[in-house]
Amino acid sequence: MNAPPRSAAGSLWLPLVLLALFAAVPLLGLAGSPGYVLSLASRVMIFALAALALDLILGYGAIVSFGHAAFIGIGAYAAGIADAHGFGDAAIALPAALAASALFALATGAVSLRTRGVYLIMITLAFGQMAYFVATSLKDYGGDDGLTLNTRSTVLGSGLLESDLAFHYVTLAILAAFYLFCRVIVMSRFGRVLAGIRENPERMRAIGYDPYPYQLTAYVIAGMIAGVAGFLLANQAEFVSPSYMSWQRSGELIMMVVLGGAGSLHGAIIGAAVYLLSQEYLAQVTEHWKLIFGPLLILAVLFANGGLTGLLASLRPGKPDPSKSKTQTISDS
């Protein structure tokens, strides 16, 4: 089936509203406990950034990576290890996080992207587990217990990020910048080739595009963005732990993307927010919040095909439903 062209201008209001909401969070926090609200909002934005990266390859490239949390961990460990050696400045730690996640993405992507379908899901899972076990064996950097940062990264010598409020807005700026970056990628020639490969790799090959370099490039870009998210997460929590890259985390990232609606970019941000906030809310209602959350996830998968952005789009008459643009497997049961 043919995908209707996504109108760029028509879907711009939603991401703008989202970013504005994040910008307004500190005002909201003045009433209650500002520390808690700010740290929760920052965490949501950080995972939104990682989910955004995953959506770039999952939603647009049809690369289902079940090891994407590894990049968060690598970025976080780059920040943590740089800090442990006294290089706590973002000018050193951030490039280190980018380089480490790019290298890991290049090496694992080069192998993983030769496989398809289920095997791709499984091999990315395997690489994620490898990264996890390497982290647990880093005895000099806390091993299983993780590593506490001395301070948040300085920015060219200034302690700007020490303030939760400043950190909030820096994170927001980074999220907005990467959202724009991903949007540009998706609308570029490169992004169109990627989407073409998602729809029909054989046909793309027939008209002269080898999918492999395009998918690998997208994979490395997504890995690097998730690495930035990891760098931010380490600074937000002032703590790094192997659990950042557990396979459950990778599953949660996929959940965020699909919950929000894969292949829309802002869907990933919505998904991350809904996922983390409903988790937070349910955890306050009952200690056994997963008893409610688990079935909710199942229901969301079974009935909300196309995610929340899909639901939103289908509410507006005349707008194409993004969920319909993707090839859907036909049920034979």
Binding site: L58, V64, V118, I121, G251, I254, V258, T329, I330, S331
Partner: peptide
């Protein structure tokens, strides 16, 4: 008959 992604989730 659903996508593997849906099944995983």
């Amino acid at each position: 008959g659903r996508s593997h992604l849906d099944q995983v989730l």
